[in-house]
């Protein structure tokens, strides 16, 4: 360095004591730095054992709570399913309940009803939600008012079920509306026909849960790269062509997850059945959950009901696993 006037030397001279040495002559590196004051705080030490256990201790309250309300009842149900239970009398039967269930026509009917009502309801709400989302996602109004579209699913399921019960059956609101439109004459007996009764369950479920899928699909579409859609437009694609060739394939993973969640929910559909139809007419609307409820709490075959719920759990897990795995596997290629 050829510069004679280093900044520390030209800076205002600092003197701690008018009679003391002129500190401005001391090179900067030579001035002792005050050591940080550590008095009064001893470094804290933890035993290695505690350090290792600490994360688990933090997780423990939540884990205990979760295990208590899910794992314990689950294991208890599996255990109970091996017995014929009449209140306090437990008689060992091994897989007796299971073999009885597999020969029970009502069980197979309930399984069929669940699959049928669930499949129709799920396809309808997916299609409606996709169409609405695709038409609406560019609209700034919808971006701002998303929460309004969530309203139906924020209501208490049992309250919604009672409203639909009033609308279809007790209050005859729907029949009245259809009558005024001139579509039907008189009053429709919604519980008198197998398909009409199933339809009421489907309508109620679609009304309440389409918003769930809609909101997820809107988010997925808004997250898509705008440039890709514009590129497709310039490539000459019409709106439907863009949807089928570009947007929909890109949404696939989101659709699979959303539909799986909804599918699991629909498989365990209970509230609407309990409130609106109670399985009538003639068990045509009895779902798996309602079948289990009827076996357990109406007929008090607790072992039988437990066995049915174990079967249902296995079925749900297997289907959900297969669907998700397959969808994501093929998406990666």
């Amino acid at each position: 360095m050829s510069r004679p006037d280093c900044s520390w030397a030209t800076a205002k001279p600092y003197r701690s004591d008018p009679m003391g040495p002129d500190l401005s002559q001391v090179p900067a590196q030579g001035v002792a730095q005050a050591a940080p004051d550590r008095r009064g705080t001893l470094p804290r030490r933890r035993s290695p054992l505690l350090r290792k256990a600490f994360p688990y201790l933090l997780l423990a309250p939540a884990m205990v709570y979760l295990l208590a309300i899910t794992l314990y009842p689950g294991l208890f149900a599996i255990y109970q399913s091996l017995f014929v239970v009449k209140f306090l009398t437990w008689t060992w039967t091994g897989f007796g309940n299971y073999s009885a269930i597999l020969q029970d026509r009502e069980f197979w009917a309930a399984l069929g009803n669940t699959a049928l009502i669930g499949a129709i309801s799920l396809s309808l709400q997916t299609a409606i939600a996709l169409a609405l989302a695709y038409f609406a996602y560019r609209d700034p109004l919808i971006r701002g008012w998303r929460i309004v579209f969530l309203m139906p699913m924020l209501f208490m399921p049992s309250a919604v079920a009672f409203i639909w019960k009033l609308a279809f059956n007790d209050g005859r609101v729907i029949s009245d509306l259809l009558g005024r439109l001139g579509l039907i004459e008189g009053n429709l007996d919604w519980l008198g026909s197998i398909w009409l009764a199933r339809l009421t369950l489907i309508v109620a479920d679609v009304w309440q849960w389409t918003p769930f899928l809609f909101i997820i699909f809107v988010a997925a579409l808004q997250g898509q790269d705008q440039e890709i859609e514009e590129a497709a437009r310039l490539d000459g694609a019409s709106w439907p062509a863009i949807f089928w060739n570009v947007s929909l394939p890109m949404m696939r993973p989101v659709i699979v997850v959303a539909v799986t969640l909804r599918g699991i929910d629909i498989t365990t559909m209970f509230t609407n059945v309990y409130v609106m139809t109670q399985g009538s007419p003639g068990g045509a609307t009895e779902t798996m959950s309602y079948f289990i409820y009827r076996q357990g709490f109406r007929m008090f075959n607790f072992g039988y009901a437990s066995a049915a719920s174990v079967l249902m759990l296995i079925l749900t897990v297997v289907i959900a696993q297969t669907v998700v795995k397959r969808a994501f596997h093929s998406g990666k290629q």
Binding site: D225, E227, I228, E230, A231, A232, L234, D235, N245, V246, P249, M250, R252
Partner: peptide, 13 residues
Amino acid sequence: AMVFQGYALYPNM
């Protein structure tokens, strides 16, 4: 025809 800054290729094809 347009070439975009972010390529805008169709990721599924």
